[in-house]
């Protein structure tokens, strides 16, 4: 059963506070490959590994059905800095 972006979004938003979320379907529509950018206060004080483990855990069922899953995780502050850097 293919995963859709709405299911992913729901699963994430149910579990943690989300400041910003981008979900990109990289599978050309078959739903087995996703890349996400996730900005959340929940990542505060956590290493990248811990953040990814957290996302892996909350999307456990969905990831198990995918071929590829890629994630970028930021705190709101990090994301602001990133945006500032990108636009300057």
């Amino acid at each position: 059963m293919p995963i859709d972006t709405i299911a992913l979004e729901k699963a994430i938003k149910r579990a943690i506070p989300v400041t910003h979320l981008e979900i990109e379907d990289q599978s050309s529509g078959c739903g087995d490959s996703y890349a996400i950018v996730l900005v959340s206060e929940a990542f505060q004080g956590k290493t990248t590994l811990a953040r990814h483990r957290m996302v892996n855990e909350l999307l456990k069922d969905q990831i198990a059905q995918m071929h590829a899953f890629s994630q970028k995780t930021y705190t709101p502050k990090q994301y602001e800095e990133l945006q500032a850097k990108g636009s300057s």
């Binding site: 990248t48 590994l49 990814h52 990831i63 198990a64 899953f69 890629s70 970028k72």
Partner: peptide
């Protein structure tokens, strides 16, 4: 590893991460 995807990298027996983490690091 309690990690759902491959590739996975270990350095001196410690799990470092998968592709996203390696690229970021």
């Amino acid at each position: 590893s309690e990690w759902p995807t491959v590739p996975q990298v270990y350095v001196n027996g410690e799990f470092v991460g998968g592709c996203d983490i390696l690229i970021g690091m």
